[in-house]
Design a protein around this nucleic acid. Structure first.
Lengths: 366, 366
DNA sequence: TTGAAAGCGCTAACAG
DNA sequence: CTGTTAGCGCTTTCAA
């Protein structure tokens, strides 16, 4: 008689519907009705049940609910890295749409590793998420076949799925954006334009390279492989790449950078070079921007992706909208979840050139 | 005999352990043993089971597993906004630690709304997450009491919980960091220092204000409320605040900004003012940085929080480490989840002053 | 080494 | 309006 559990509300852990029912003197099902706001419960009874709920600190176990109903009201989101502003913007948009549909979001970062992408996706499937939004790191999505058979819905964002997978896909107009940006530099008189982008294993990098080539071709300019440097956008690699370009016998007068991280890394390199060569000496500076003469080691620059402070720095960019990408993908997913059928769609979102100075300087006159 | 379901593998949805058992000609429990790598299964039997698993495309239902075992192997993370680089850095760190412990992360953004924080937390609890990491928007956490009673573990990060809640907490040394930054400006000769920070409803803003006051007091300088502007860090508000400060009869010669977003907004304002007043005319500019004379509308600047490109812009800052904050919080949580007991801890992480030029300019000599 | 039975907490289906 | 029964897919006993 020292510690009789029957005295307390419950032997262990959390109170269940059964406990509430006992406390309120009603049947389990009545509690269920009250908890789920189902109609047809006597207001007085409902009140009694609610009182018991409050007293016991009862909270419905959504795991059990999920098991019974077959839907988890959650979705899985696999991206490359939440800490990258592009993906965190996308995440936020997905989260907002999900919340509006009363779903929760599991998020996982693949770090560009196809195996980790696969593990995350399958783990989310084991959790029986209702749907998936995937920014794929890999190019083979055969592993999803059993999941699709079982009825899971998936939308691919930013990059398409591997061959043979007809899932909905939202991309941005990578080639078109790149073409516009490069054409812009050409229109300002540049003939030798360096192209720095992510590794060619990445879909967006390849597409942007394609746009670069198309812009050159449209202007009747030759494609020179020596002006192209692709690889992971870490500071050292970008630095080496730019040094190589500038050491060419006929160096570029402008650069096109293929994503936000590469652009930022490039700025650091060019700043260092400018400082070293004292190119700026004696020049007047206007505000904080980089536009005007002799900035950026004398190179014109257009970058793919907008980034914080690009406006202040006066960097001309080709903007895509990560949050629109996320929103669109999430909306496509929820349309599928609410029963929409039909063949997989492939959407392409537009990009927008924003002129801020760095892309509007002419090549040096000789 | 047209569409006999017994011919296919399953009547509807996904195959279950039962289906696998039937297909392999063993009992349910044997499948369970194989799936969970439990010892004591005949290798040949195990092989037969694995074949059936592959054939049917079986994947364990973790919802059911969770219900039975009582632990969900997932944690909930509530932050202010994933799209803010500070919180996305924190998120990534939490995710990495969770993954190492084989847990998944539900993420939700509260948007500084206490009601939404509460809803998110309770929804995560309904999902029976094993633990929570919370960056609180509100100051009353009484709503967590039943959850704590039920055994849930929570760690608060970046800001402490409301009174009466003894949960583990990881903060950064807000007051100390602020004190150091302001003292740095004082050491460079400034006597009138403007303080711009987030709304006083936010813990970190209050603490940083305290540090500001302490630094002034330590130097024997008076505290002038007219130099302090607090509120949400949107561009317009910050703009108005700075205009007011500069319109004072005795305007500040330096600014201390209380978080990353405020610092960035401040840079935009100062750039606009510099351009308008042509303060820069005739000055030589070195690299991309802002250090040197006459930058930033003639004001010295130190900001709390590091941010992308602050190095390039030459902005002196008091850095905290969001990913260390996240990592520490997650590790504290998993320590609790693995049975560690004892009173709630309160950790304070150090900050670091990084000198980059904007904080080392003396006040104008008159 | 294998299996049968019970039950996690809830909702669906069907009475009263 | 309220209650009873069955069972979601799995793990946990316990027995063979």
């Amino acid at each position: 008689m020292r510690d009789d559990p029957s005295v307390g509300e419950k032997r262990s852990g959390r109170p269940t519907m059964n406990d509430v029912a006992a406390a309120a003197g009603v049947a389990l099902k009545t509690v269920s009705r009250v908890v789920n706001n189902e109609p047809g419960v006597n207001p007085a009874t409902a009140e009694r049940v609610r009182a018991a709920i409050d007293r016991l600190g009862y909270r419905r176990n959504d795991s059990a609910r999920t098991l019974r109903r077959g839907r988890t009201a959650s979705i899985g989101l696999v991206i490359e890295d939440v800490a990258d502003p592009f993906y965190s913007g996308l995440s936020r948009a997905v989260e907002d749409v999900a919340l509006r549909h009363e779903h929760f979001v599991f998020t996982g970062s693949s770090g560009e590793d196809p195996a980790r992408e696969r593990d995350l996706v399958l783990a989310f499937c084991a959790r029986r998420v209702d749907g998936l939004i995937i920014v794929p790191a890999g190019t083979d999505h055969g592993y999803l076949a059993p999941e699709f058979d079982a009825g899971i819905k998936a939308v691919f964002a930013d990059r398409p799925p591997g061959a043979g997978c007809g899932a909905d896909t939202v991309l941005c107009d990578n080639a078109g954006g790149s073409r516009t940006g490069v054409a812009h530099l050409i229109a300002h008189g540049h003939r030798r334009i360096g192209f720095l982008a992510d590794s060619p294993a990445i879909f967006t990098a390849i597409e942007r390279l394609r746009g670069y080539r198309e812009a050159l071709a449209a202007a009747g300019l030759p494609y020179d492989e020596g002006l192209v440097r692709m690889g992971p956008p870490d500071q050292e690699r970008v630095h080496a790449g730019i040094e190589r370009l500038l050491a060419l016998p006929d160096p570029p007068t402008a650069l096109f950078t293929g994503n936000g991280r590469t652009t930022v890394a490039t700025l650091r390199v060019l700043a260092a070079i400018s400082a070293r060569c004292s190119i700026d000496h004696g020049l007047v500076r206007h505000g904080l921007g980089l536009h005007g003469h002799g900035r950026l080691a004398g190179l014109a620059l257009v970058g793919f992706d907008d980034f914080e402070l690009a406006d202040l720095l006066g960097i001309t960019i080709v903007a895509q909208d990560p949050s629109r990408l996320g929103r669109t993908a999430a909306e496509m997913l929820f349309r599928r979840l609410s029963g929409h059928t039909g063949p997989g769609l492939r959407l392409e979102l537009p990009t927008r050139l924003i002129e801020r100075g760095s892309g509007e300087t002419p090549p040096p006159t000789r």
